[in-house]
Simulated assay, not measured.
Amino acid sequence: MTITLRAHHLLCVLTYSGKGYSPAFVRNFDSVVRRLDKREGLELVSGPDTLCAPLCAEEGDCAHCHGMSVQERDRRALRDLAPLLGDIASGSRLVLDAARVARMRCAFAQGAIRGACTDCPWHAMCTHVAASDYAGARLHQRLST
């Protein structure tokens, strides 16, 4: 089974540290991160994805996940990630190996791929995680030292 992720959630997985909208959301995010750590493939989608599932179940209609501000986050994330990941769009498939995660985390910490983070309620927390060299982040992929 393939993990589906909207573009801005590709950024969220870099700093995810066990906090979320609800206990169900956190359990689901933990499961997704474990799968990504096992290098399960992912497909970029526009609209609700694997991470959205608990919100959609709780809200019943995924209103948040279809909002214009969320769609704008995805557009900005695609734009910012293109120099690192190539020509990506909805339907693109990739695997988050350690080298790719390291490049993305470096760019994230430098602010180069944070256009999607504007006005995000998690901005300060993600900034703190990135500034601490991703200590506490649940995605464990690191380059071997």
Rank of each mutant, 00 (worst) to 15 (best):
I3V: 14
T4M: 02
A7W: 01
H8C: 06
H9D: 01
C12I: 05
C12K: 09
T15Q: 06
T15K: 00
T15W: 13
P23R: 09
R27F: 02
D30K: 08
D30W: 04
V32S: 02
R34S: 11
G41Y: 00
G41K: 07
L42F: 12
E43Y: 00
G47L: 10
P48V: 09
P48I: 03
P48T: 06
D49K: 01
C56T: 06
A57I: 00
E59F: 00
G60V: 06
D61F: 03
C62N: 02
A63K: 10
G67E: 12
M68E: 15
S69L: 04
V70M: 15
V70K: 11
Q71P: 00
R75T: 14
R76P: 01
A77M: 07
L81H: 05
L84V: 04
L84M: 07
L84A: 08
G86K: 10
G86M: 05
D87K: 13
I88T: 04
A89N: 13
A89D: 15
G91Y: 05
L94V: 06
V95D: 02
L96S: 06
D97S: 07
D97V: 03
R103N: 11
M104R: 06
C106P: 00
F108Y: 15
R114T: 13
R114Q: 13
G115V: 03
T118P: 00
C120R: 08
H123V: 08
S132C: 08
D133G: 04
Y134V: 08
A135P: 01
Q141E: 08
T145F: 10
T145S: 13
